[in-house]
Amino acid sequence: MSEKKKDELLHDHNHDGIDRRGFLKCMAWAGTGAFCVMKGGVLNSYSLSRMSEISTADMMAELSFVQISDSHMGFNKPANPDVVGTLKAAVDKVNGLSATPEFMLHTGDISHLSKPEEFDTVDQILKSAKPKDVFYVPGEHDVLNDDGKQFLERYGKGSKGRGWYSFDKKGVHFVGLVNVMNLKAGGLGTLGHEQLEWLEDDVKHLKHSTPIVVFAHIPLWSVYPEWGWGTEDSAQALAYLKKVGSVTVLNGHIHQTMQKVEGNVTFHTAASTAFPQPQPGKADSPGPMKVPAEQLRSVLGITDVNYVQGQHALAVVDSSLA
């Protein structure tokens, strides 16, 4: 592999689905950032430092949206005493994107303690974002004390069960899942039987060529079960999506960007807008990680996703708030 190609990954999904070398190379840790384009089942991954080499055609998107996550409004500990300021910075970042996103996804932990005033503050700040529609799924911090009643009243209009739903935008099918309710002692995130049945039915009639974006708070892949970073029954959910050519899974919860490709599925976790958490197993616990104040915004961020119709491609780009 030549020096120029060092950061590039060509991964053929038409074989058995899991290429160990590709798997490892397409994991992007906090701060590094990755841009992935999928074409006809082949995923190209570039580091952000080589973005200038990507052709304009690749960047032209029919549909562009942004994922933000883990705003933890109400958090006031040393890891970030100003979560209002960093959420505002995230909105500024969204508003500064060259193509205005059509909408935003918030993948949960909107609030820190499920307090009404915390949700109010986030709603107020997000009003200044150029994209006016925001689609939410709850994090465990949003459903404290009331089994998610308040969350459903605020954000769950038209949703099913405990807040799951789907919608279509420009040929892409979006599915919002809830995996933070009814958690069992010793276990991970859970989707539950009722939601899985709904999902099976929801995707049954989709064509192979319809790209799917699935978003949920806790990762739908086993990032680090020792810290609860995974979902017990996610394999069942993904089994229903096997027949679809391109699945992009967007999660939050772990407060760092990470990416993995497995078969037809690209998994991606977003940075938080509030505080970073340590890399798996690199600390005693997954609690908030204190970094020097001047470095904080470099480990917080937003995720920009672009879909190029006809090219079968979803491109995921992380940007820090720095």
Binding site: E140, H141, L144, L183, K184, A185, G186, G187, L188, P225, E226, W227, G228
Partner: peptide, 12 residues
């Protein structure tokens, strides 16, 4: 009496 943290169920 076994117990856990219902937010972080790995904590038992």
């Amino acid at each position: 009496y076994p117990y856990f943290c219902s937010i972080h169920p790995k904590m038992t």
